[in-house]
Amino acid sequence: MGCFNSKVRKQFPGHENPVILASQTAFSVSEVEALFELFKSISSSVIDDGLISKEEFQLALFKNRKKENLFANRIFDLFDVKRKGVIDFGDFVRSLNVFHPNAPFEDKIEFSFRLYDMDSTGFIERQEVKQMLIALLCESEMRLADETIEIILDKTFLDADVNQDGKIDKAEWLNFVSRNPSLMKIMTLTYLRDITTTFPSFVFNSEVEEIAT
């Protein structure tokens, strides 16, 4: 492996050795390589530059380039670990790792907290939750009176915001999700268990000499 994947590295900036990525994540080397097949397809859907842009991410999620989606944008920003405006393969694998069924539950809770703490203040504020709720209603073409939205927010904050300071801190979030485990469903992708079956072509494109499983 002296000149390890130099061609791949040129074509895919930020591409990392699958063996190293596997050692840092819950994925096996084969699974990392299968994820690379998925990455190749997403990152070449608009511009074939080996990186996933926001537009390509949205296209992969919604299968069309429709209107901006607050939540897809937020996920994209969290995946864009290096804050470059694009997702490279290393970012992609490490971020998806949090969604692996075997990933530590604390990592999932931490990711979900950052997801909802949109302005990164260390708190999930009522105003942020209202903004997300309105975005959700808009996306699903559901109409609720502002009064009803406020009732939902009151109820939610009465339950989650234990010290009643109008914002949810990390400890309160931990407490809240442990009482409402269904909130963590979005943080686990069972698909990640079958990734090698979904993308079997990784076998033909393998960069490692022997695939350890």
Partner: peptide, 25 residues
């Protein structure tokens, strides 16, 4: 009808948070 779901339960139904769509070929 009374709304029984909390705000986060509603939010978690967003399509933008459903990453399983990434795996549909």
């Amino acid at each position: 009808r009374p709304v029984t779901m909390n705000a986060f339960e509603l939010i978690s139904h967003s399509q933008g948070l459903n990453l399983s769509n990434l795996f549909d070929k």
